[in-house]
Design a protein around this nucleic acid. Sequence first.
DNA 1: CGAACCGTTGAAAGCATTCAACCTCGGTGG
DNA 2: CCACCGAGGTTGAATGCTTTCAACGGTTCG
Lengths: 252, 252
Amino acid sequence: MSQNSALVPALDKQPHHRLHPVLAAFAGSEPRHLPAPLISRLQPHEILFYQGDAANHIFEVVEGVIRLYRLLPDGRRAIAGFLYPGGLIGLSSNHRYACTAEAITAARIRRHTRSQIEAAARRHPELSGWLLQHMRDELAAVMNHLLLLGRKNAQERVASFLIAVAQKKTACGRPLSVDLPMSRADIGDYLGLTLETVSRVLAKLKAARLIALPAPHQVLLLQYDALRELAGEDDDEPAAETLTAQNKPWTH
Amino acid sequence: MSQNSALVPALDKQPHHRLHPVLAAFAGSEPRHLPAPLISRLQPHEILFYQGDAANHIFEVVEGVIRLYRLLPDGRRAIAGFLYPGGLIGLSSNHRYACTAEAITAARIRRHTRSQIEAAARRHPELSGWLLQHMRDELAAVMNHLLLLGRKNAQERVASFLIAVAQKKTACGRPLSVDLPMSRADIGDYLGLTLETVSRVLAKLKAARLIALPAPHQVLLLQYDALRELAGEDDDEPAAETLTAQNKPWTH
DNA sequence: CGAACCGTTGAAAGCATTCAACCTCGGTGG
DNA sequence: CCACCGAGGTTGAATGCTTTCAACGGTTCG
């Protein structure tokens, strides 16, 4: 509950760009026509904005965990991502927010108007680049998630999830302790499973001694590498690039 | 096979920004130190680049259809998107490409170096904004796809797919004719289904008179609205925004 | 003409879901 | 203080949707 790296839509792996109050810093360097960015507090089930709302603001999670989700007309829910402190919300939105943002835990959120950000970005190219990088990271994370949702089975999904959550906690010694502030239903809606299936898979991983569950919201990764194997992601594959460097179509 | 709007990762709906040779136009307005952007031709199964390759280029589809996909170690494949003429590839990539890009049909591709693009973007703010917008559209499309993969059943997925493909063809009168240059396996890997399931669902939709299949790669949407209903997306919901404008947490 | 590829269709199997019961834990109030 | 209640988690049994395996027909191409 006290990690502070971004866990953007599909759980970023690289913990680069840890700067907490980045936007605030840039906003602060502007002439102070505007009040300093507002920090608002959210109660556990409070909504920050709804899908379809005009996307006039960009939010920065200061504390707590936020879920982003979309709903089908009949109520089925898909969680697009969990946001941890340092995470940015709404950056990649168009005119309207694509998801609903709701607090899972009590949270503190820094709010910036889009125009503020854009003005600051014009003045500070490094901020502009940083925001772009953030969007690219978000997209890369979502690509991973498409593979997970499209082609992985329940075990692989849960294992991938645990690995991803663990990779935010910058490599303490294993066995790794991870806590999951969200409910089983949240995890299910994130992984495209039912809450029962999530529970069952966790039980199975526990029976296989790959994890331990001291409490429902705390997981110990006992065999990290076995979990990675199960997750089936070649996260940091070395350069398979020199091999394929020839025979590029455009070298014709 | 002759549409010319972008069908980015999850099949864009808004056909805005139809400008075919945008990047070329901007590149051309530079002092001609560099050769004009190369156009290369791809054979049906030719690879443009592999996932993991250094992302030094940005590509623009001029003609044909490209698939972007990721693989699991055991060969399972998830197609992240199909790209049609006008689509940009690699724009949102980090240092490395997140997907493999492969031609489905014979294709012509315009290649730009990333540095060319970036230089042009610095000189032409409108290009910069356009690229940003493109990334946002891509992300929005992927969000739709997460919902599809995470929570829709086979029928809903196929219906959504057909609707999305149809929405590229700017609203000719219904019944709408749509052609699918990709194979059933491609559709399956895009929708998180097997090729058999795709075939079966199409047969079922045909039996229900919602579509007709004059040829395997041509679909007639006989009952567009019923399909939309089945797809279950409130694509263009009107403003539900004024209703929720009050009770924003930050107004505390 | 035969091989290969693609799409379709059938039958059986499997994995996740659905429905339901039970349990634990906190909070509340009698 | 303890009974009651609701929320969240776990587990079991049955169902079902999708997958898997297999066969068949059509088309293309060497």
